[in-house]
């Protein structure tokens, strides 16, 4: 189940993970100071908004529903776009993300769950911190041969994963160019980079992390899912539907998480739109009878 990671490789990875976690935080601090000093403009709003949709849909509809759970099928170029879009969130290469996530489901809230807040050895707060961000620095990696074998055979996924830092860089460059195009100034490019790049990466990372921490701790549990997963509707929009996490754990392969009118599921809307356009098909979704059987 676990990969015996070599100490030297673990050290290198931890340095990379530390930078990937800390630099966006630094970006948020600089961005806040700048807003205090010179005020805001539309560049921040537009670049943040556009890039948040790209990385948010990439993670939730792409990395999560399509690549981890095969909740729907899609045209190759759509799969490529989703893989690249998800990579811009700086949550690791798609191969790494998917292996961790499949193990999370196989062992949800058990001792081998990579990121459960419910570990008896830790207190409540330490457990939450571990599930949120601490687990990333742990020494255990799920075996890709066991948990991502299909994707290791998928040349498209392998290619996107191999060059994952290109896509992260593109996710920083694109909002900088957009900021420059909006203003024609270097300051516009800088603020695009800051808000559409670093602040957006911070928000994308921590909304995903909240699904791992908060959505296994507080919220409603409409379905018997055999773990502590919850629905937190307040996070539904920023997590692009990911925070409807109890729905998801009850029915992991569903392409759409909205089982009530109050379940806002932007990724589900996006996937339905792809289907209408003929770009995605075989959308999985539990029937009303299946949902009733599992409801608490």
């Amino acid at each position: 189940m676990w990969l015996p990671l070599r100490p030297a490789r673990l050290r290198t990875q931890r340095i990379g993970f530390a930078l990937a976690t800390a630099i966006p935080v630094l970006g948020v601090v600089v961005a806040a100071l700048e807003i205090g000093r010179i005020g805001w403009s539309w560049v921040e709003v537009v670049t943040f908004g556009v890039m948040m949709v790209v990385s948010g849909i990439g993670i939730e509809a792409g990395f999560h529903r399509h690549f981890s759970h095969r909740a729907f099928a899609a045209k190759p170029w759509v799969r490529l776009a989703l893989a690249i879009a998800g990579t811009t969130a700086l949550e690791g290469p798609v191969l790494y993300w998917v292996a961790n996530h499949r193990l999370h489901h196989a062992e949800s809230d058990g001792p081998d769950d990579p990121h459960s807040p419910h570990t008896p050895a830790r207190g409540r707060l330490a457990g939450l911190l571990h599930a949120h961000v601490g687990w990333i620095f742990g020494a255990r990696r799920p075996s890709p041969g066991r948990f991502a074998r299909d994707l290791l055979r998928d040349p498209l996924v392998v290619w996107v994963s191999r060059h994952h830092l290109w896509w992260v860089a593109a996710g920083l460059l694109a909002p900088a160019l957009l900021g420059w195009a909006m203003t024609g100034t270097g300051l516009g490019a800088w603020r695009g980079l800051l808000w559409g790049g670093l602040v957006r990466i911070f928000v994308a990372q921590h909304t995903t992390y909240l699904v791992n921490s908060a959505c296994h701790t507080v919220g409603r549990r409409p379905f018997a899912s055999g773990d502590h997963s919850t629905n937190l509707r307040i996070l539904a929009l920023p997590t692009f539907g990911g925070s409807l996490h109890n729905n998801h754990h009850a029915f992991p392969s569903t392409a759409t998480n909205d089982f009530s009118v109050w379940d806002l599921d932007p990724s589900g809307w996006f996937i339905r739109l792809l289907a209408v356009a003929g770009l995605a098909w075989d959308l999985k979704r539990p029937t009303a009878a299946q949902r009733k059987r599992r409801s608490t």
């Binding site: 990969l3 015996p4 990671l5 070599r6 490789r9 990875q13 290469p93 191969l95 790494y96 292996a99 990696r141 890709p144 041969g145 991502a148 074998r149 290791l152 055979r153 040349p155 392998v158 994963s161 191999r162």
Partner: peptide, 26 residues
């Protein structure tokens, strides 16, 4: 040996280059 997914992908890419034909990372 403990190669992670990225190392497996890189090593198989090297094998592919050496042999001049595709090799699955699996």
């Amino acid at each position: 040996i403990g190669l992670d997914s990225m190392e497996a992908v890189e090593l198989t890419a090297e094998i592919e280059a050496e042999l001049g034909r595709p090799v699955d990372p699996t």
